[in-house]
């Protein structure tokens, strides 16, 4: 070795540690997926290979119902929170520094720090009051709750992208006769898009797997996939749960891959 630069990778035991960490991260997931093909009734005892649980999950009306609801909520929450987060990001980066800017920045990101259970109880109480007063029921409450806690997740990648953008591009657009709206539409938004997509996907995934807030806010018959699975665990555990989890995992992996390819192409 010509130069003696410090490298973590050269420390003794680095490879062993890395292998242990990766096993800890992925072995449970691997086991989950493997046992979704279990022919036996047990989630822990291997009884041969079978697609049965996927078939059962697919044919289960409750699962279909919960999945559809989860998707409706996640798509709505992702769209709403991304739109709000985009505006928030533009408002906190595309103007001169103003008094209380840090305070607003903290306020936007605070939901990341507040224990989810506190938010859940708070929403339960607030929605209870609103329902009492107006008599309005429906899925809107769950969507609203999801959209709210997804905002900081959508905000962070969008803001990061905006901060890395060359401001002179917007000046150049204005110089070339673009109105403020045209500048946003033809320059800012296209350049911001990878950040917006990343924010939307993050919000979608966060919404899709939320249990705590959904469990508190939902009314009867408003089970999402995660709350349905939680309910099933209380009764009997079959590899059907593994099959559902594996399909959720597959969806996430597909989304992440799509996002990776999208952003790489754009840069």
């Amino acid at each position: 070795m010509a130069t003696k630069t410090f490298s973590v990778a050269k420390l003794p035991g680095f490879t062993t540690t890395a292998i242990i960490v990766f096993i800890a991260l992925y072995l449970p997931i691997f086991t989950l997926v493997a046992y979704s093909f279990n022919a036996s009734q047990s989630v822990a005892v291997w009884g041969g290979f079978s697609w049965d649980w996927y078939g059962k999950a697919w044919a289960n009306d409750q699962v279909k119902d919960a999945t559809l609801r989860s998707l409706i909520i996640a798509v709505s929450a992702a769209l709403i929170s991304t739109a709000v987060a985009t505006m928030a990001a533009l408002g906190t980066t595309r103007r001169k520094a103003f008094k209380g800017q840090t305070f607003i920045y903290v306020m936007i990101n605070q939901p990341l720090m507040v224990p989810e259970i506190v938010t859940a109880v708070a929403l339960l109480i607030m929605f209870g009051i609103i329902k009492q007063a107006t008599g309005i029921q429906g899925l809107g409450y769950v969507i609203f709750a999801h959209a709210a806690f997804c905002i900081p997740f959508a905000y962070l990648p969008i803001r990061a992208r905006l901060e890395g953008m060359d401001l002179s591009l917007e000046t150049a657009a204005a110089d070339l006769y673009a109105t403020p709206w045209q500048t946003f539409r033809h320059v800012t938004l296209p350049l911001l898009l990878p950040g917006v997509i990343a924010g939307a996907m993050l919000a979608f995934v966060i919404s899709l797997d939320d249990v705590v807030i959904t469990e508190f806010v939902k009314s009867g018959g408003q089970d999402t996939l995660p709350t349905y699975m939680l309910g099933q665990m209380r009764r009997q555990l079959t590899p059907e749960i593994n099959a559902i989890s594996s399909m959720l995992l597959a969806l996430t992996v597909v989304l992440l891959t799509a996002f990776f390819l999208l952003t790489r192409k754009n840069d």
Partner: peptide
Amino acid sequence: PNQRPVNTVFQSYALFPH
């Protein structure tokens, strides 16, 4: 600026990368 019949060549060029 968008209502002025004046155009600028910027020091950084500011070409639209997309």
